[in-house]
Simulated scan of single mutants.
Amino acid sequence: MITIKNLEELFLIKESSQLVSKMLGMLALEISPGRDTLYLDKLAEEFLRDNGGIPAFLGLYDFPNTLCVSTNEQVVHGIPNHKPLYEGDIVSIDCGVLLNGYYGDVAYTFKVGEIDAPTKKLLEVTKRSLYIGISSCNIGNYIGDIGHNIQNYVEEKGYGVVRELVGHGLGKKIHEDPLIPNYGRKGLGEELVEGMVLAIEPMINQGTHRVKFHKDGWTVTTLDKQVSAHFEHNIALINERTVLLSTYNYIYDSLGIKSKEEEPFIF
């Protein structure tokens, strides 16, 4: 069942999404060769709690940490550990928080030092596919339109779209209806209506779309061991517009990146 939010609820969800966004901006300064991901996890938990939030992933379905940290061929749900990051790695950090009764859930794939050109291109295409998905979230469109447009763009670039893991609704629960695949057919699925809050999150592989689920019950990797990227924003449909509740601007401020990509979706 899809839960429609009022304006007050949208602002509360935005506060949660912004807290995760600020935390990712803080972590952007800490991601470097030699840094281990368990250290990043500790920093994230402290930051969220110090700002009044409760880590949403910690204990969710028995997940053991605050962050999902997925490096290189890991697609999602990587468990933080003491293994150091290396120059040329990429690392996807996915995090949720509960604040004032509502959830935020944001992900970004970071470069560790300098990365090679093919991996850089994968990150560019994956992030661009995120905004293509967001641009498809117009009132009167359908869930299938989102995935269709993401899939068409990504596959034209020669990459694989993960099928087994999808986006979702967001609110008083971190995973609400509707499910939002990153592939599909136009005109299928639920109609998009005023008051929806959605987490759009393409997971794109450099090679095959096929993935492997590991025995730890969490880690998902690409089947061909090529690298994968993951970006996630929280959006709302309000006043006949599609608006961002989360932001990457805290990350960009930390890294000295200039970007106008979010301007069409400012809340």
Rank of each mutant, 00 (worst) to 15 (best):
F265H: 00
L12V: 01
Q226I: 03
L48Y: 06
L122P: 05
V166Y: 14
G256R: 04
N65V: 11
C137I: 06
A44V: 03
Y86N: 01
L244C: 06
S92A: 09
G217M: 13
A236N: 09
E263V: 13
S16I: 00
D177I: 10
E261P: 07
K215N: 15
P84E: 07
S136D: 00
L40G: 15
L40T: 12
A107G: 10
G104C: 04
P55R: 00
N152I: 15
I200F: 04
G195S: 14
L165E: 08
M26K: 03
F267E: 05
T219G: 12
K215E: 15
S228T: 09
K258I: 15
V211I: 14
E156V: 11
D89M: 12
I257K: 10
T222S: 15
S92G: 07
G133S: 04
G207M: 05
I235N: 11
Y248P: 11
D36E: 02
Y142V: 00
G59S: 11
S129E: 03
E263Y: 13
Y142G: 01
S254G: 14
G217K: 10
R210A: 14
G189M: 08
Y86G: 00
D105A: 13
G167R: 08
Y183I: 09
L7P: 13
V162P: 07
I235K: 09
L98C: 07
N234L: 08
E240Q: 06
S92H: 05
P181V: 04
R185N: 02
L24Y: 03
A117P: 13
N100T: 01
T247S: 07
T222H: 11
N152P: 10
G113F: 06
Y86Q: 00
Y248K: 11
P84F: 11
N234F: 08
G34H: 09
Y102C: 10
V69K: 10
M1P: 11
R35W: 04
E124I: 01
I139V: 14
